Amino acid sequence: MKTILLIEDNELIRENTAEILELSGYTVLTAENGKIGVELALGTKPDLVVCDIMMPVLDGYGVLQIFNQNEQLAGVPFIFLTAKTERTDMRRGMELGADDYLTKPFDEAELLSAIRGRLNRFRHLKPDYDLQHPGGLGEFLEDASAVGNLTDLTLDRRPHVLRKKQEVYVEGDEPTRLYFLQAGRVKTVRRTAAGKELITGVYGPGEFLGYLPLLQQTTHDDTAVVLDDATVLYIPREDFTQLLHRNPAVGQQFIRLLAGKVSDREQQLLGMAYNSLRRRVADTLLRMHEEAGATPDSWIQLSRDDMASVVGTAPESLIRTLSEFKQDGLVELTSKGIRILQPAKLRQPNW
Rank of each mutant, 00 (worst) to 15 (best):
E11R: 12
I13P: 00
T27I: 07
V28L: 07
V28Y: 07
G34R: 10
P46Y: 13
M54S: 15
P56A: 14
P56G: 14
Y61C: 02
G62S: 14
Q65N: 14
A74H: 14
P77G: 12
L81N: 10
K84D: 14
T85P: 01
E86P: 01
D89Y: 10
D89E: 15
T103W: 01
P105H: 10
F106A: 09
E108Q: 15
L111I: 04
L112F: 10
A114G: 02
G117C: 10
G117F: 01
L119D: 04
L119A: 03
R123G: 00
H124T: 12
L125F: 11
D128R: 13
H133V: 00
L141A: 02
V161N: 04
Y169L: 09
P175I: 08
T192G: 14
G204M: 11
G206S: 08
F208S: 06
G210R: 08
Y211P: 00
Y211Q: 13
H220L: 02
A224R: 02
L243R: 03
L258K: 04
K261N: 14
E266N: 09
G271M: 02
L285K: 06
L286W: 05
R287E: 13
H289V: 05
E290D: 15
D297G: 03
D297A: 13
W299M: 11
W299H: 13
W299G: 00
S303F: 01
S303P: 01
M307Q: 11
V310F: 13
T321H: 03
A344D: 15
A344R: 14
N350A: 12
